[in-house]
Design a protein around this nucleic acid. Structure first.
Length: 274
DNA sequence: ACCCTCCTGTCA
DNA sequence: TGACAGGAGGGT
């Protein structure tokens, strides 16, 4: 579920409550999510909290008598949630059934809930191994030139192209449809056939949609919650996703749903012509 | 470049 | 009962 804006929301909320705190222990309730020796991260100071692609990453200080830092990455995949609760607020979440892991601090805890058990926690000894391959579209390195180069080498339809994490990171099924709509491009158009004008539109749409979604703390389509248990406010700005047969907000033409690589794509056949 | 699968749940 | 759900790695 969480794409770049949702993970960014969680990262921004957790950074102030985790940074400079001691991670007393990591408790794993479901081994499937994490094959980590939890003693390796216990009693380390959390130096930094950041987002890498769709992952949340905690930079942890070296243990005493060691110089080796490590990085704990958390990928929420489809249904993962990270919920923070101060000790004063416990007992916390009612959803004990889907509690998969817990980061215990002195004054509170972050609980990972995940209905479908796709989430993953991993430990890295360098930030590079935690890092996804692609370019972050919210970074300064993302330019029309870079986007043009990346598009040229692929014949993939645009919407599935946007979801590939080895080219651009962070875009998933919701924002891929929204970005295609904002750019006015048909989701099945081949990446390498976009002209300069279309690439310019796609570039602006990508930045605009992601920035707006971050501003509204992400999208809750069915069950995304941020670290405070709040739902994402961007859902009311969605123009295509989940709106099959509803009128296009620009031209009233019914929104279509098609399937591309087993995933739903929503678009307006009038605003996004081939 | 495509399909399937990993899981659990909801909804038509 | 079957389709579908924010993701991505593995196989062909």
């Amino acid at each position: 579920m969480p794409e770049l804006p949702e993970v960014e929301t969680v990262a921004r909320q957790l950074a102030p409550v985790l940074t400079a705190k001691c991670l007393r222990r990591l408790v794993i309730y479901d081994e499937k999510l994490a094959g980590i020796k939890t003693h390796k991260v216990a009693n380390r100071r959390i130096e930094r909290v950041c987002r890498l692609g769709k992952q949340l990453v905690l930079e942890l200080s070296p243990k005493p008598n060691s110089s080796k830092q490590c990085w704990l990455s958390i990928h929420l995949r489809m249904t993962g949630r990270l919920i923070y609760a101060a000790n004063s607020r416990l007992p916390s979440h009612p959803d004990k059934q889907h509690l998969r892991a817990k980061l215990v601090l002195d004054d509170g805890a972050v609980s990972l809930y995940d209905l479908r058990r796709f989430a993953r926690i991993a430990l890295h000894d360098s930030l590079v191994t935690a890092q996804p391959q692609g370019l972050d579209p919210t970074s300064r390195a993302f330019s029309v030139q870079r986007l043009t180069e990346l598009l040229r080498i692929s014949t993939s339809p645009l919407k599935p192209w946007l979801m590939r994490q080895d080219r651009l990171v962070g875009i998933g099924n919701i924002y891929a449809s929204e970005i295609c709509f904002a750019a006015g491009i048909h989701p099945a158009q081949s990446a390498n056939t976009l002209n300069n004008n279309e690439i310019q539109c796609l570039y602006r749409a990508t930045k605009h949609i992601l920035r707006a979604a971050i501003k509204h703390c992400g999208t809750t389509f069915s069950d995304f919650q941020d670290s405070r248990g709040q739902t994402g406010g961007y859902v009311r700005y969605l123009k295509t996703y989940g709106r099959e047969n509803e009128p296009c907000k620009a031209c009233r033409t019914p929104i279509l749903r098609i399937v591309q690589q087993q995933r739903s794509t929503y678009f307006c056949p009038q605003c996004q012509r081939r």
